[in-house]
Design a binder for these strands. Sequence first.
DNA 1: GCGACTTTGTGCGAGCGTTCACAAGCGGAT
DNA 2: ATCCGCTTGTGAACGCTCGCACAAAGTCGC
Lengths: 239, 239
Amino acid sequence: MTDQGDAAPERARSRGIPDATVARLPVYLRALHTLADLGQATVSSEELATSAGVNSAKLRKDLSHLGSYGTRGVGYDVALLVDSISRALGLNQRWAVALIGVGNLGHALAGYGGFASRGFRIAALLDADPHRVGERLAGLTVRHIDELDREVAEHGVSIGVIATPAPAAQEVCDRLVAAGVTSILNFAPCVLAVPDGVDVRKVDLSIELQILSFHEHRKAALTGLPVPTEDEYDGAVGS
Amino acid sequence: MTDQGDAAPERARSRGIPDATVARLPVYLRALHTLADLGQATVSSEELATSAGVNSAKLRKDLSHLGSYGTRGVGYDVALLVDSISRALGLNQRWAVALIGVGNLGHALAGYGGFASRGFRIAALLDADPHRVGERLAGLTVRHIDELDREVAEHGVSIGVIATPAPAAQEVCDRLVAAGVTSILNFAPCVLAVPDGVDVRKVDLSIELQILSFHEHRKAALTGLPVPTEDEYDGAVGS
DNA sequence: GCGACTTTGTGCGAGCGTTCACAAGCGGAT
DNA sequence: ATCCGCTTGTGAACGCTCGCACAAAGTCGC
């Protein structure tokens, strides 16, 4: 995705950690913090896997990728594992985050404790609506979107969070990229186009609901109790 | 955790649509609605794929799963495809949704237009805090969590959205399942245990940020410019 | 010191998802 | 009516992911 492909295995090795593993590391980290708070010093892969809702073999393979070794016959040292995962995820430094769009969702995000809890600091709040500029929120003053460049530079922002309406998202995204932001978390219900080297992750509430709808629909069909509305599908999936 | 591999392939084949495809169908649907609003009657796989940010071959294979056929040499009929995907996702009926937890995030979710836009209707707002009970929000009155059973039965709720703090999530989840809800969208930062037959999808803002952090960290390492705070980390990860 | 027990780390096969490449099919021009 | 160009639908290959099963390695009890 970011490079010209003739070094695919090379890239895989240079990075070392598969995407699927990276996506699970934060889950492990959360479970470990809970265990640490409970005063537990070591944990077995079986126990941690149960807490994280995954298979224990998968957990062990995941952890093996980041070179953090447990002790056979005992398990993993909780504190050491927390440190190891945090380091792998780059959480041993504080990332400055800019939040664009201070509407309903933006307010909720600004007040969400999960941002500040691990290495993330909301460094700037921005909005295009002049009526919102100047508002105080989460210890910050909302600035106008035109000041994005300055705010990004001043606070060393490298992660942008887009919580604007969909029509504004692409332009905001372009501005963020132009300002030097290379990671974007997009809450707007649209697809963003970005140049190579910029990572975008999408959080879409509507899509999640639609996926649930599919499964619910399927379950209703399986129970033999068709939903009130007609549930017709002439199969003939001629594959 | 719950899938002991007894019927995993069975289920996949019974309906024919792979999970990865199901996750993309809502994206296609959104792009199609945009095209329809623009008055476009037909669309090629190449064009739709670009709008949705995927490979055109992948799009065609996805669409082939739901038996909706395009016309060779022309493309897909937009209206027909909208109908076909909506039907596959079960969006041709209205799903009643219960939202539990009317805090910051809950308010944002209740006001989010994306819920109502496609087949979803928030039928009940619930909270454990007596101070919040009685509040009017999005045309509804917030009820106490103890009335969950009644509300679920009365409105035929089959999808629950959990927007409570993490410590309360599992209990709320158990109550939802006991009330007959079989699909849950969880915004609380924790892993939920549910019996077989219940689907849970998780939306975790903190995890998404940590994944971005990993990639940002990796990119910084690749540029040969180590971040200033590489070696130091505040050991006291508060809270 | 030694044996038994526990737990990690991993080789391996199976399944899923993605992409390429191309034959089949359709509409429109001539 | 026929041919040409365009687009779909899909067979096949490849890489990624998962889970099993087991050897390696360490601890605990005596």
